[in-house]
Design a protein around this nucleic acid. Structure first.
Lengths: 176, 176
DNA sequence: TTGACAATAGACCGACCGGTCTATAGAATT
DNA sequence: AATTCTATAGACCGGTCGGTCTATTGTCAA
């Protein structure tokens, strides 16, 4: 496990594992956590049952948690990218969100935000999922606030505004 | 059926039917449509299986549609009430939304908006549910716009603002 | 009283759920 | 070549899903 001939040294992407995560993300966007069956999920990922249990001993729930974390990482990375490159962060932000909305309408409004659905579906018992979501939303909001601050908005205002932007965005998805 | 000795003339409330609707609303708020089983639903409503099928031949889905419509009617009625009575519509609106948020936090953030969850869960195949939801959101937004107009806001602005308010509200629920 | 019909009650069913388990294939190490 | 460990593969299982079907009860009209 330590050395690795054909791949990057420390992390092995394991395509099958990634396919499972991708399938779960798609499922969360379209139907929600309870809406998809394992068989459908595995069919979409072209994977047999054993492989899910192998990569995610915690089963469906663990896959969902990992998927949530993956999404959050990608989202915050996208925001960081805006921070570094754009000369006009606000405009870049608008473009970014516009792109997100376009991908939504391109799917015929089938695919929304995968976080929103599972957030509403989850109960207080689903502690692992709830924790992942809570941490995720905090990360997204704070990263967004950083972007706003870089655009010259005062710190306190930035956090408020970031929360509002995320809220309005998720809310719009609900109604679409 | 035409005459009716003990109840109001035209409509019979049929308590059992109402209990089913109430149970479905609660279920939608807490877990979403796919998250609840019929057995759990019926247990909460203290009703056997046959009675669900009797009142709602379309089964779980029809119950959900009727529940959605019921919620929308109650919501718009609440807004109309504000319209007629309040001297300051905007302030009354704020109070009203504050009350909604309080009931949310009182439930330990278990219960959100029942419309939001099922909206995100539903797929394009669930035509009945989608139609009910679409009509419902339109009704809520337009009723809210009327209230805003009465508060002196120009018509076009009112509709935009109404959409934003609803969006922000739903979005906040997602994150709570 | 009797007949008709709405409402209640729950046994019952096939399908599918998420999950476990055993068997095989493949790559790396020795 | 033998061994070891990871990854793939799918048969299999008990439980629950949503839904149907057959009584039974209650309530009017005749």
């Amino acid at each position: 496990m330590s050395t690795n001939s054909t791949n990057t040294p420390t992390a092995d992407p394991t395509p099958t594992r990634d396919r499972l995560i991708a399938a779960m993300r798609d499922a969360l966007q379209r139907k929600g956590f309870h809406g998809v069956g394992l068989s459908e999920l595995l069919a979409n990922a072209n994977a047999p049952k054993g492989v899910l249990y192998h990569h995610f001993p915690g089963g469906k729930t663990e896959l969902a948690v990992v998927t949530i974390n993956t999404i959050v990482v990608q989202l915050t990375a996208g925001l960081q990218h805006i921070n570094k490159k754009a000369t006009n962060p606000l405009q870049a932000l608008a473009v970014w969100m516009g792109a997100a909305q376009k991908s939504l309408s391109d799917s015929g409004y089938e695919k929304g935000c995968p976080l929103a659905t599972i957030a509403l579906e989850s109960t207080p018992d689903d502690t692992a999922i709830r924790e992942a979501l809570a941490a995720g939303f905090v990360a997204i909001r704070s990263q967004l606030a950083v972007t706003l601050e870089q655009a010259g908005i005062e710190a306190g205002k930035s956090r408020q505004l970031a929360a509002l932007i995320v809220s309005a965005y998720e809310g719009a998805l609900v109604q679409a």
